[in-house]
Structures are given as C-alpha cells and as structure tokens.
Design a protein around this nucleic acid. Structure first.
Length: 553
DNA sequence: AACCGCCTCAACCGCGGAGCA
DNA sequence: TTGCTCCGCGGTTGAGGCGGT
C-alpha cells in the first residue's frame, strides 16, 4: 500500500506535474525547491493518498514522506479547503448566509470558528464570502447587517438606557475593579431569524454602532480605529488606556474580548454557544447600563467595524490601523492615551453627555468623536479668540454640552493623558476633512440626500435576505450618506445638551469655520432655528451646511 | 473583438499560540 | 526561561471568469 503513494510520486515527478507547470519557490525547504501556485490533480492525489495513510497533521512531513513539493502549510490548506471529505461545495444557501451574518455579528472575523458552525464549509470560503459581501454592500452603500437588526438593537438599547436611567454610570465601573459583563445566552441562535435577538444582549455590539455601520456603511466611521481595547482594559481599574499598540490586536469580536486574558469560563463560552456565562461575580453589574458607554465602543469590530470591512479609498480601516505606520492612526496609537474616536462617537450616541464636574477645558475630544472633537477644538479657538472667560464657567455648569458624567468613562480615564495631548493628537478639523474626503471620494456612496428608507429599499434589492421592516421601525429619516449627521442627529435626539449651550457651540463652530464661513454658519443656524429637535429629526443641519466639511480649516 | 472593471476563488504570507526540549 | 518547531488563523494577493461598454 505504501508503494502506491511512492509510485504516484514517481509517476508524477517523471510526468512533471510536480515540477513542470509550477512556479518554484526560490526559497527551499531543506534544499528542496518547493512549488507554489495552483495545485495539480496529481499533487492532490498524492496528498489524498498521504492523508489516507498517515492521517491529518504533521504536514511538514508530507513533503518529506511523499515527495510532494509543497510546504506543510500549503498541504494543510489544500487538504482543509479542498480535499478533505464532506466538504460542501457550491454557493451558500440562504440559511447558511443568515447564519454567517449572525455568527459574524457575534464573533467578528473568526472564520475558523464560524466554519465550525457550518458543516462542510471552510473558513476560507466563509471569509471570501464575507469579504465579497461587505464589498458589495458597501459599494452599494448598503448596511452590513440587516436594518432590522440595527434598528431593533437601537430601540432596545434606548429602552434599556431609559429603564436604567443612568443610575449606574460608567463611574461606577471606574470605581469597580470588576468589570462586569452581562450574561449572554446564545441558546436561541436560529439560522432563519431575521433579526439577531441577541444583539441587545451583546455588550460588544452596540445598537448605535450597528446603526452607524448600517447607515451608509458609515464610511465616516470606518476610518476610525477599532476600539476593542476599551473593553479589554476595562477589566483593570487602572488600565483603561494603557497601551494601544499592545491592546489593539485586531480582535474585537465580542467573545474575543472576554477570552483574552480572562477566565476559561468565558473562553469556553466563546467557543460554545448555548452557554450562559456570567463573567463577573457581581450580578448587580450585569445590567446593560453598566455598559452604557461601552456598548458601542467595542462593537465596531463585530462586523460593524469588521476587520474585513473594505477600505475606503486606500485608507486602511480594516484592522487597527495602529499597525499601519503610514496612517495617522498609527500615530494615534503611539500617543499613549489617544483614544479612538469611534467608541466615543458611539458612546455619545448611546449616552448623550449629561453633565459632570469635568471642566470643558479639560475635556478631551479624544473621547467623544469627531463632532465633539470639532467642538472642543472650536471651543478652544473660540475661547482664545474671544477671550471669553465666562465660557469656561458656563461650561462647568451642569448640562454643558462638553461635560459628561456618565456618558464617557473614557474621558475620566483618559483625563490625565488628555491634558497634555492635543486632542486626538491631530487637528479635529483635519480629521473631519479627512473623514469627509474619504467618504466623499466614494462615488458609489449614496447621495447625502438619500434617506435611510431609500437605502433600505436598495438593500432589499441587493440582498433579499433582509426584510424591509425598517420603515415601520424607523420613522426618523436618517441621512445615510453622512454618518456625522447621524451622529449629531442621535446625539441631539437623545436629549443632548445642545440646547443648553447652543450659543457656545455655534460660536465654536463658527470659530472653526473661520471668518469667511462663520457668519454664514451662524446665520444658517439662527435662521434655520436649529433646535435640538430639528437637528435630530432632520438629519441634522450638517447636511444643510453651505459648505463642504472638507473645507474646514 | 477588445478593453475594462468587478467578482470569485484559491493560495500565499505573516503572525501568534501551543508544545516541547 | 528561552528558543525552536509545528500548526492554525486571519489578511492579502493574484489569476481567471464574467458581464458591460
């Protein structure tokens, strides 16, 4: 029997499929030139034969024992993806697609684990499918996840927020050494559900972040670095933002967060759904409010900010760009305390800034996202420009837009770092500009005038998996083309403090815009009577601004 | 028919974890 | 503890196919 295998080797080697039609790697393995490129049927036969005889594993021995001029990795890959029995070929079924979506929402880019839930499918298949799907949907400006999922999650998030009433804010978390994670049960994972019933239960998947991704595929936010570290570092009372480069590893799937560095319990839970895993010992902390500010902060990688998310115009959004020295985000990472904007944006949406004892001057826009960053910078500029000392006193009053008690734990945590750092380590306006630029460069993006409903209709056409319930659930018109608008929209809608400090903000923005535009902006703001409600309901006045955001100084 | 752009798929690469000496 | 090897995973790339112009 052994002869068969070697006979094959002899035959194939003489017949040349192993050496003739392939590109040989310059590098050799033990002096043997290894072939690269597509596998031939002859090579397949050898590999199959070898595995039949010796079983899987020990792939590096394949080349030695069978004469197959392939490295062990290549053999393993070939076997796993093409040769092993029970592989299911062909297109994914609707059930499989749905399951992939759900699994991805839950796991992020954990293809291998997802594959474990899809018998006969390989991680590579799933990965390819997902990446293709993302590209397709993003190109079409469609949501990554079904709108129902996002809206339901958003609604549930809001209701949760309302119920909890902010009694237990982030400060509680700050003061608590034990970062509690609510029970998450995945028993009810059903392949054919149109929504993800567990979404609201997932601390790693925030409604708002999903919504953001949902809306216009949020090119705006895509450029932002993932925020997994936030949750990761929550475990330690002193390590909220210790080291980005170390913390960000490109893994933000919900469970990954729990897995990394935590209990075996969570680890097992992550690998086996249907397991309820109270991670923290304190049941009282198992309320979503405890996660309030974090709900979005680490959710993005869960598909919302998937590592597989396509890039926008050459900007690497996918994974922690911290590793990309060419991007400014890498610089962010090197700034010891530079927080990702995204989490803050999300936190903003989830938990509009109520009030706190934080001085506006010390408040770092690092924490609160683009708009906040702009406001911060604008305020600074405005303050300098006008020498208005009373601004600071105003800003220290409760309700000030720039103040926050429980809306952003990160702010508190980062306080000391923020003091010495320029907000975000770069100009907020430049961020804005960049952001808009990136988004605007996408010709495939829906126009800003496009409503979310329209988008959804597109979604229907492009992806029949999704059911158009959004119109009933989301009477609010959301500008999918401008996630910043969405951001602002939600922010205001959720009772932010715009009204409380409208003048200040107007001045701030006007300052940011410069003399040429400030008057125009002010007129617009005044003339249009931009109340918080209107801003919220009308997709925010960003869209109505008589200038391109990229024109911001 | 030629070109172009997009999509799909297979395969490679780099990294990191596990196991072991 | 360190270094090595093996293995698996996730990201990326490139070839080929397909459809539109």
């Amino acid at each position: 029997m052994v002869l068969d295998g070697y006979l094959l080797v002899i035959i194939y080697q003489t017949a040349s499929p192993l050496i003739d039609d392939g590109d040989f790697e310059a590098a050799t393995d033990g002096g043997v030139a290894l072939k690269k490129g597509p596998w031939t049927s002859a090579e397949d036969a050898i590999l199959i034969d070898y595995v039949k005889k010796h079983g899987e594993g020990n792939w590096n021995a394949v080349q030695k024992h069978s004469g197959l001029l392939r490295c062990g990795k290549s053999c393993r890959l070939r076997w796993a993806n093409h040769l092993r029995p029970n592989l299911k070929k062909g297109a994914f079924t609707q059930e499989e697609e749905q399951l992939i979506i759900e699994l991805h929402a839950k796991m992020g880019n954990k293809w291998a684990r997802m594959a474990a839930h899809l018998p006969g499918r390989t991680d590579n298949e799933i990965k390819n499918y997902w990446n293709t799907r993302i590209k397709r949907r993003q190109r079409a400006g469609l949501p990554l996840y079904p709108p129902e999922v996002c809206m339901q999650a958003l609604q549930e998030s809001h209701s949760t927020s309302a119920v909890n009433g902010g009694d237990k804010g982030p400060h509680d978390i700050l003061q608590n050494d034990n970062y509690e994670i609510p029970d998450v049960v995945f028993d009810n994972l059903k392949a054919n559900q149109n929504v993800l019933p567990y979404v609201s239960d997932l601390p790693g998947i925030s409604a708002s972040s999903m919504l953001m991704k949902d809306l216009g595929s949020s090119q705006y936010y895509s450029f932002m670095p993932p925020t997994i570290y936030c949750q990761k570092h929550l475990r330690g009372p002193t390590a909220f933002f210790p080291d980005y480069t170390g913390a960000v590893k490109g893994e933000c799937p919900l469970f990954e967060q729990f897995e990394d560095g935590t209990s075996n319990c969570s680890n097992k839970a992550a690998q086996s759904f249907g397991v309820s895993f109270p991670i923290g010992p304190d049941p009282a902390a198992k309320n979503s409010q405890s996660f309030g500010v974090f709900q979005g902060s680490h959710s993005l990688p869960n598909g919302n900010f998937s590592a597989s998310d396509p890039t926008v115009e050459g900007v690497k959004f996918e994974l922690p760009s911290f590793q990309d020295p060419e991007t400014d985000f890498g610089n962010w990472a090197t700034l010891s305390c530079s927080p990702p904007l995204l989490e803050s944006v999300d936190a903003f949406i989830q938990s509009p800034p109520p009030s706190s004892g934080l001085e506006s001057g010390s408040l770092s826009p690092l924490n609160s996202g683009l708009l906040d960053a702009v406001f911060h910078e604008a305020k600074t500029l405005s303050s300098v420009k006008n020498h208005a000392s009373d601004k600071s006193s105003n800003s220290s009053t409760p309700g000030d837009i720039t103040e926050s008690s429980d809306f952003d734990i990160c702010k508190t945590a980062r306080g000391k770092c923020a003091e010495t750092l320029s907000p975000m380590g770069r100009s907020a306006s430049s961020l804005f500009s960049e952001c808009i630029s990136a988004s605007g460069s996408s010709s495939d993006e829906p126009s800003s005038a496009e409503t979310f409903t329209e988008l959804h209709q597109k979604s229907e056409q492009a992806d029949n998996v999704f059911i158009p319930e959004i119109q009933k659930e989301a009477p609010i018109q959301l500008d999918s083309g401008h996630s910043d608008a969405l951001f602002a929209s939600n922010w205001f809608k959720q009772g932010s403090c715009y009204d409380a400090d409208q003048t200040l903000m107007t001045d701030a923005i006007a300052t940011l815009l410069g003399d040429d535009l400030s008057s125009e902006y002010k007129n617009m703001a005044a003339g249009a009577s931009i109340s918080s409600q209107e801003w919220g309901l009308d997709s925010c006045a960003w869209n109505n601004m008589p200038f391109e955001m990229s024109e911001l100084p």
